[in-house]
């Protein structure tokens, strides 16, 4: 009798715990899948992005055709800035890189990304005329690449050194020392990358590749996919 009363109890116990164990396994599998997919996302980086580094400065420039070009005019475009001046003797490599990018833009598949190149003069003595001659000497296509000077000299240092974080200084002999620097700014006026140090890959190649990354983000980060792009930003899946 005792056996018959106890038996439902003893058979009930393992059945419940078996069910419990199944639940536990299911939860563990789901958790493992979540962890594995996050790990795979971070490791294989199916989506790469460029970080939103900091705010680009606000400015008003006068270009080589004496037109005003402001940071508001450039909102909505992806702009690569560099810094130089018309009488610079050591700026050849900066101009060559810009030219290489200008040529690359003609053949790169950027899905209609609106791109502009802007060389900002750091020499307060540059005028639209000297900049026009400078632009001619580099082979710049004026529909893509603009040469301009800061309209109000009082804010030149705020724009170039403060905003774009690019070092320049007037030397005693009248020359200007200047760091090679390229700054990529997105359509919302946010700096997405800075190129200051030469790497194995040339600056032009990296910049063109990064423009491709931005073009993909603009094209694909819509609707639900925007969450995947936010995840890529969150997990620092940055393009090299």
């Amino acid at each position: 009798m005792a056996i018959s009363v106890d038996s439902p109890e003893t058979t009930e116990e393992p059945r419940l715990s078996r069910r419990g164990r199944r639940w536990l396994i299911a939860v563990a599998v789901v958790a493992a899948l979540v962890v594995a997919s996050v790990f795979a996302f971070v490791t294989f980086q199916p989506i790469q992005v460029l970080p939103r580094v900091r705010l680009a400065p606000g400015f008003s420039l006068i270009d080589s055709e004496s037109r005003t070009l402001t940071s508001e005019d450039l909102r909505g475009r992806f702009v690569l800035y560099t810094f130089s001046y018309s009488s610079c003797e050591n700026c050849g490599s900066i101009d060559e890189t810009m030219l290489e990018i200008q040529e690359g833009l003609a053949t790169a598949d950027l899905r209609g990304l609106p791109v502009r190149l802007v060389t900002i003069s750091i020499d307060p003595d540059d005028t639209p005329e000297t900049l026009a001659a400078y632009a001619d000497s580099t082979g710049a296509d004026s529909s893509v690449w603009t040469f301009a000077a800061v309209e109000d000299d009082r804010f030149l240092a705020d724009v170039v050194a403060g905003g774009f974080n690019t070092y320049y200084a007037a030397e005693d002999d009248g020359s200007i020392s200047l760091d090679r620097s390229f700054v990529l700014v997105d359509n919302a006026g946010i700096i997405r990358n800075e190129y200051k140090y030469q790497t194995q890959t040339s600056d032009a190649e990296r910049i063109l590749r990064h423009l491709g990354v931005l073009a993909e983000e603009v094209e694909n980060s819509k609707g639900a996919a925007s969450l995947a792009y936010e995840a890529a930003h969150l997990f620092l899946c940055y393009a090299p």
Partner: peptide, 16 residues
Amino acid sequence: EEEIGSVATLYGIYYR
């Protein structure tokens, strides 16, 4: 005007 111009520039603000 200089102070405002500097702060605005650094905060990405253009004005005229």
